[in-house]
C-alpha cells in the first residue's frame, strides 16, 4: 500500500523512516504510468548545501518519473526543497548523488555546455517573479530562447519565421497590443504571460513552473493557469508545478508533497 504524506511525516525520525524513504519514491514514480513516454526519470536525488559549518540535506533521495503530457503539482512548506528539486530537474543545479535522465540521457554525465543545450531544448521555466529582461520588449523577451538556440546562420535564415511564431503565441496569450512594450510597461499578468510565452516558444517537453501565479490576483492567476494548462495540453508538454495554491495544484494530474527533502503523494484524507 502506498504511504500517505501523513504517514511520511509520522515516520520521520524513526527507524522506519529509511524503509519508507525507499518505498515511497518507487510508488511515486509508478504513478500514473499509463504507458506514456518517459520524459524524466530521477532516482535517489540527493542535494546538500553547506551553510557555514553546517551541512543541510535539502533533498534526501528523491525518485521521480515524469511522462509526456502529464502535469504534476509539487506542494510543501517553504524550505522543504521544492525549488531545489525544480532546479535539479531543470538542470540548473547538479546532484550530489543519484541520477537524472532526461529523455533517456543521463544528465549527471553531461558537460556544462551539453546540459545548457539540453536545457534550452527540453525545458522551459516560469517563475513567480516573471524574470523578464528589462531592456527587451515583450516580443524580444519571448524570442530570446530561440536566439540562444540559434547560430548566426540559422537565426538569419529563420528570423522572420521565428518572429511570426512568437508574435502568434503572444497574440494567443492576449498580448497583441503589448508586443513592443518593455516589462516595466506591463501589468503583472501581462508579464507572466510573456514569461509563459518565453517558456513555451522553444516547444520544450517539460515546463517547470515555480509559483507561476504566486504574485498575481485571483482572477489573473486563474487566467494564467488556464492558458498554462491549455497550451501545455495543446503541445503535449509535461508540467511540473511548484505551488502553495491548492486550487492550482488540483488542476494537475497528480499532486506530490515535498516534506523535508522527500517526495510523497498528497494526503487524500
Amino acid at each position: 500500500m502506498t504511504p500517505t504524506v501523513s504517514e511520511l511525516m509520522h515516520d520521520e525520525g524513526t527507524d522506519e523512516a529509511t524503509a519508507v524513504e525507499t518505498r515511497v519514491p518507487a510508488d511515486v514514480a509508478a504513478l500514473p504510468g499509463d504507458g506514456r513516454e518517459l520524459v524524466m526519470r530521477a532516482r535517489g536525488l540527493m542535494r546538500r548545501y553547506r551553510m557555514g559549518h553546517e551541512v543541510v540535506e535539502v533533498l534526501r533521495g528523491v525518485d521521480f518519473d515524469l511522462r509526456r503530457g502529464e502535469s504534476v503539482a509539487i506542494m510543501g512548506r517553504s524550505g522543504a526543497g521544492k525549488s531545489t528539486l525544480l532546479h535539479l530537474l531543470g538542470l540548473l543545479d547538479t546532484v550530489d548523488s543519484g541520477s537524472l535522465e532526461v529523455e533517456g540521457v543521463d544528465t549527471t554525465r553531461l558537460s556544462t555546455g551539453a546540459r545548457s543545450r539540453l536545457r534550452n531544448d527540453a525545458v522551459g521555466f516560469v517563475f513567480q517573479f516573471y524574470h523578464l529582461i528589462p531592456e527587451l520588449t515583450a516580443l524580444e523577451n519571448a524570442m530570446l530562447p530561440l536566439r540562444i538556440a540559434s547560430s548566426l546562420g540559422s537565426w538569419m535564415a529563420n528570423r522572420k519565421r521565428h518572429r511570426e511564431e512568437v508574435r502568434a503565441l503572444l497574440v494567443e496569450l492576449g498580448l497583441s497590443s503589448r508586443l513592443f512594450h518593455r516589462p516595466n510597461q506591463l501589468s503583472g499578468g501581462e508579464r507572466q504571460r510573456v514569461a509563459l510565452a518565453r517558456a513555451l516558444v522553444n516547444r520544450p517537453r517539460v515546463l517547470l513552473c515555480d509559483e507561476p501565479t504566486g504574485n498575481l490576483d485571483e482572477r489573473t492567476a486563474e487566467g494564467i493557469a488556464d492558458q498554462l494548462f491549455d497550451l501545455a495540453q495543446e503541445h503535449g508538454q509535461t508540467i511540473v508545478l511548484v505551488t502553495h495554491d491548492g486550487e492550482l495544484a488540483q488542476r494537475a494530474d497528480r499532486t506530490l508533497v515535498m516534506t523535508e527533502g522527500r517526495l510523497g503523494l498528497q494526503d487524500e484524507g
Binding site: 540548473l92 545548457s116 536545457r119 524574470h131 540562444i148
Partner: peptide, 16 residues
C-alpha cells in the same frame, strides 16, 4: 546577476 540566472534557465552556457 539575475539576468545571468534567467539566461541560464533558457540554456545560455557559462561560456556564452
Amino acid at each position: 546577476t539575475r539576468d545571468i540566472g534567467i539566461l541560464s534557465t533558457m540554456g545560455a552556457a557559462p561560456l556564452g
